[in-house]
Design a protein around this nucleic acid. Sequence first.
DNA 1: ATTGTACACCGTACTGCGTACGGCGAATCG
DNA 2: CGATTCGCCGTACGCAGTACGGTGTACAAT
Lengths: 257, 257
Amino acid sequence: MPDHRTGGGDPAHTLRLLWRQTGDVPRRGPRPGRSLDDIVTAAIELADAEGLDAVTMRALAQAVGVAPMTLYTYVPGKAELLDLMLDAIYTGMPRPDRSGDPWRARVAAVAADNRALFTAHPWAAEVATGRPPLGPGQMAKYEYELRAFDGTGLDDVARDAALTFVLDFVRAGARSAAESRSAQQESAWTDEQWWTANAPLLAQVLDERRFPTAVRVGAAAGAAQNAAYHPDQAYEFGLARVLDGLTTLIATAKPPQ
Amino acid sequence: MPDHRTGGGDPAHTLRLLWRQTGDVPRRGPRPGRSLDDIVTAAIELADAEGLDAVTMRALAQAVGVAPMTLYTYVPGKAELLDLMLDAIYTGMPRPDRSGDPWRARVAAVAADNRALFTAHPWAAEVATGRPPLGPGQMAKYEYELRAFDGTGLDDVARDAALTFVLDFVRAGARSAAESRSAQQESAWTDEQWWTANAPLLAQVLDERRFPTAVRVGAAAGAAQNAAYHPDQAYEFGLARVLDGLTTLIATAKPPQ
DNA sequence: ATTGTACACCGTACTGCGTACGGCGAATCG
DNA sequence: CGATTCGCCGTACGCAGTACGGTGTACAAT
């Protein structure tokens, strides 16, 4: 998991790029050969195909068809590029009108939408968004997702906390998946191969009398995970718990009328 | 957030190091000047003090008082070192007998213990543990934490899923905190400075009619986070939801007798 | 038409990372 | 007392982001 994060560049510059308007003043000198969107789109495609680590300035330049240093005429640096990539995929998320559904279905849908985002763009889960890209995509996403809690009786602070709670849960699962994927890519061992390689070695040193519960539960969990697809299981289990937890909160906040 | 992960080395070699026994056969040649524990301890201290990024083989070598390449006579590579560091801090975690407490208090204590671990060793939150360090520390931790669900009526698979759910929640919060800290370290901007730098710029481009909920809730949440310490708030809110969600599950699994 | 200038483009080079490789010298064994 | 083992480490390589400065083009002003 690389130390990629949004909000790494100069705020003023980053915001100008995020909220860029198409109409521009006539400029002197030679016309740019590409557009900023070309760069961002190519970066997203590269990240989708080969992971975030593959998005080096050299590789991206080659994909776009320019020399590495030429990228710096479009983007101040890699930090700003990441903000632009994220905001772009946020912009592309679906936002159907779900005002007729009950809140629980709406929140479940928000979770599913974010999960789908991370499936389509696994690299997005790896990016630290403590300082979110404050662009149009992020704002539209935030606006839409907050609306999922309409009618729950939660106040504004609780509403933000609840959304953060749900999104953090989805992100955590996507991160595990992304980490697993990049681990396989870099170590040339499948997760499964790694476990089967470890099992016999571990059995030699592991004392069942010292760790009885761990050995028993570990075996059961291991068997269950082989039967079905593991990340999906953890997601289903966790999402049910998340929604139940919010249900308890909302039942207290808004007693049944 | 660097792409540090456990389980990156050769399984056989890693396990041998993790379960190393002190009694050794007499060896030929010169005696080692340091012990493996010296290396691991120094690495943990360095990570505690300056973050995981500061643990470079060169910096660690200097801390230990040897040349960089000398480290490779103690550890096959950096991947194995990380496994050893993590298992070592797991070993040091407190494991008091809480069998008298109700399950909810026990699980809350497990969450608190893990949170304390990440407070003492913030770098631990950054490490991807999809392939956990299968050493004595990790096993003791797993054994102990599974016991928190004794008497809940959960079967082995659900018990593992529930523990994973709780630990992932705590880890997600600790990651945010760690990311925030390293962001401040590298960008020379405080999170707060960053937000106050962005606020006026964002106000110029942000249309309140287009994003009414976002603007309102964002303002309320921002104000609430300035009043108190933000990560603590998110933890308290989330933990209550997590426990409530598990309560609903357990009430269904084990009807009140 | 000419000149001045802003700007797109990019070749070179620097720092810092993990670590492969091979040499040196000391401690132990036969 | 030689042979062997093994701790130690100097050098060097590939790859990352990007600072710096040079080159040539296209427009604005004259």
